[in-house]
Design a protein around this nucleic acid. Structure first.
Length: 357
DNA sequence: AATTACATCAACCGCCAAGAT
DNA sequence: AATCTTGGCGGTTGATGTAAT
C-alpha cells in the first residue's frame, strides 16, 4: 500500500497557476508568512491547491529576488564544477547561486548546459536499451548498470573534457591563448586529426571505432603510440601559462586538504582514469589552470577542478564558492544553515566508483 | 500554411529523512 | 519504539513555443 496523499487530490486544482492565485499566495505569505505548515496553508489562504504546490510556487517563482534565465558564464562554471564534483545535488548547487532555484538549474543543466559541454551526440543508435539510457552504450554498457545516471554522466563529462577530440570539436572549451600559443595549438590539433584520418584510411577502422564519432578510447587503445607525442605537443604549447595558486590538495589517501585547513570542498579523485594514454599530461593540458600542481614538501596534488576555467581565465571567481561553501545553506529552498560539507563525504563515492571502472 | 520535430520550463510525483506524537 | 506528518529533494512529465521541413 502506498502512503496517504498529502491532500485531497480530487478537490485540488492542478496545472499552471493563474495571476490571481499568484497574487493571493504572495500577498498572504508576505503578510503572514507560511505559518510553518505548508499543508495547512492553502486553506488559510483560500486556494484550492495542494500545500506542496503552494510551497513550490512560492520557492520557485514568487519569493523575492528570483532570477530566471540568462545564466552567466560564471554561473555555468559553478554549475559544471559542482555537478562534476557532487552530481545532481541541485539544491546544494543552487545554494551557491544566489537567486537561482534548484528547479531552474536542473532544467538549465538538462536542456542546455549538458549539451553545451558534451555536444549534441546522437543519443540513440537503435540499441537494445531502446534509448532509455543514452549513457549505457557510450561507456561499454553492462558493467555499469549499478551506477547512477548521474555518475555515468559525470564520468562521461569528465572523460569528454579530457580527450583531445572533444576539445577539438568544442571551441567553447578552448583556453584563451596568445597568438603564438593559439597557432601552435591549432597546428597540433590538426596534426592529431590528420594522423587519425590517415589511420582510418590505412587500417579501415570500423565505423564504431571512429574517433570523430566521439569514441577516442577505442582509438587510444588501438593506437596508443600516436597519443603521447601529440599530447606532449599540446602540453608544451601551453607552457608558461601555469599558475602558482594553490587552494586544494589531495593527499595520498584521497583526502582533500585545504591550504587554510578549512573543510575540504571539492574532490578530484586521484584515481587513474580508465584511459590508457597519458591521462595526466592530457588532463594537465586540457585543464591547464584547472588542475594545478605544486611541488610542496608532501608532493601533494592540487585538485581544483573546473571545466570552464580556461574559457574565463579568471581564477578568483572559481574559488569564491569553495571558500564559502560550508557557510551557506544546503538548500536554496530553505533558510536554515545545514552544513553542506558534512554530506560531502559520501557524495564522491559513486563518482569514484565510476572512475575505478 | 500545415505539419512535424525539437527545445524549454513549470509543475507534478513519489521517495526519503527528520521531527512530532 | 513505532507510527504519523511534513518538508525537501530529484526525476519526470506535459504544455507550450519555436524551428525545420
Amino acid at each position: 500500500m502506498g502512503r496517504a496523499p498529502c491532500c485531497d487530490k480530487a478537490n485540488v486544482k492542478k496545472g499552471p497557476w493563474s495571476p490571481e492565485e499568484d497574487a493571493t499566495l504572495k500577498a498572504y505569505i508576505e503578510k503572514s508568512g507560511t505559518g510553518g505548515n505548508w499543508i495547512a496553508l492553502p486553506q488559510k489562504v483560500g486556494l484550492k491547491r495542494c500545500g506542496k504546490s503552494c510551497r513550490l510556487r512560492w520557492l520557485n517563482y514568487l519569493r523575492p529576488n528570483i532570477k530566471h534565465g540568462g545564466f552567466s558564464e560564471e554561473e555555468d562554471n559553478i554549475i559544471c564544477s559542482l555537478y562534476i564534483s557532487i552530481g545532481s545535488r541541485w539544491s546544494i548547487i543552487a545554494a551557491q547561486l544566489p537567486g537561482r532555484t534548484d528547479n531552474d538549474i536542473k532544467n538549465y543543466w538538462n536542456t542546455r548546459l549538458k549539451k553545451k559541454l558534451l555536444g549534441r551526440r546522437k543519443q540513440s543508435n537503435g540499441s537494445a536499451n531502446g534509448g532509455q539510457d543514452p549513457n549505457h552504450d557510450s561507456i561499454n554498457g553492462g558493467n555499469h548498470q549499478n551506477l547512477s545516471n548521474s555518475a555515468l554522466e559525470r564520468l562521461q563529462l569528465h572523460m569528454h573534457l579530457q580527450n583531445p577530440f572533444s576539445f577539438y570539436n568544442n571551441p567553447a572549451l578552448w583556453p584563451k591563448l596568445n597568438p603564438f600559443q593559439e597557432k601552435t595549438l591549432i597546428q597540433s590539433l590538426q596534426s592529431f586529426n590528420n594522423i587519425e584520418s590517415s589511420l582510418m584510411q590505412q587500417h579501415l577502422l570500423p565505423a564504431s571505432q571512429s574517433t570523430t564519432t566521439a569514441d577516442p578510447l577505442a582509438f587510444q587503445q588501438n593506437y596508443p603510440q600516436f597519443s603521447n607525442p601529440n599530447v606532449h605537443e599540446l602540453d608544451n604549447s601551453l607552457n608558461g601559462m601555469s599558475s602558482s595558486d594553490s587552494s586544494i590538495r589531495v593527499s595520498d589517501e584521497n583526502k582533500v586538504i585545504m591550504d587554510d585547513h578549512s573543510t575540504p570542498h571539492l574532490l578530484k579523485p586521484n584515481i587513474q582514469p580508465a584511459l590508457s594514454f597519458q591521462a595526466d599530461e592530457l588532463e594537465n593540458f586540457l585543464n591547464n589552470k584547472t588542475i594545478e600542481y605544486t611541488a610542496d614538501e608532501d608532493d601533494h596534488q592540487i585538485a581544483q577542478f573546473d571545466c570552464f576555467n580556461a574559457v574565463n581565465g579568471s581564477k578568483d571567481n572559481l574559488f569564491w564558492w569553495a571558500n564559502e561553501f560550508d557557510s551557506k545553506s544546503a538548500s536554496s529552498n530553505s533558510w536554515d544553515s545545514t552544513p553542506v560539507l558534512d554530506q560531502s563525504q559520501g557524495m564522491f563515492q559513486d563518482f569514484e566508483l565510476a572512475y575505478n571502472l
